[in-house]
Simulated scan of single mutants.
Amino acid sequence: MDLGVTLPSTNINEYIRVLKLARKPTREEFNMIAKVSMAGIGIIGSIGFVIYALLTELPKMF
Rank of each mutant, 00 (worst) to 15 (best):
K24N: 11
L21F: 06
M32I: 15
L55Y: 04
A34R: 14
K60D: 04
M61Y: 05
I41G: 01
P59H: 07
V50Y: 02
R23V: 03
F62Q: 08
L7C: 03
L58N: 07
A22N: 09
I33L: 13
T10M: 10
F62K: 14
L7F: 09
M61A: 10
F62T: 12
T6M: 10
L7A: 12
I41K: 03
M38K: 13
E29K: 04
R17K: 12
A39L: 13
L58G: 02
I41P: 00
K60V: 07
R23L: 02
L58A: 11
P8D: 03
M38G: 04
G42Q: 02
L19D: 05
I12N: 03
I47P: 01
V36G: 00
G45L: 09
V5G: 01
Y52M: 06
E57G: 06
T26Y: 01
A34V: 13
E28K: 12
E14Y: 15
L19G: 08
Y52G: 01
L55N: 07
I47G: 04
E28A: 14
G40R: 08
K24Q: 07
M61S: 10
F62Y: 11
M61T: 11
A22E: 11
Y52P: 00
I12L: 05
F30M: 12
P8Q: 02
F30S: 14
G40L: 15
E28F: 13
A53F: 09
I43D: 01
M32C: 06
E29D: 04
P59G: 06
G45C: 03
F62A: 08
P59W: 03
V36N: 05
G42H: 01
R27Q: 07
V50P: 00
V36S: 05
A34F: 15
R27V: 13
L7K: 13
P25W: 01
T56F: 06
P8Y: 00
T56K: 05
A34E: 09
E29A: 11
E57R: 13
L58W: 07
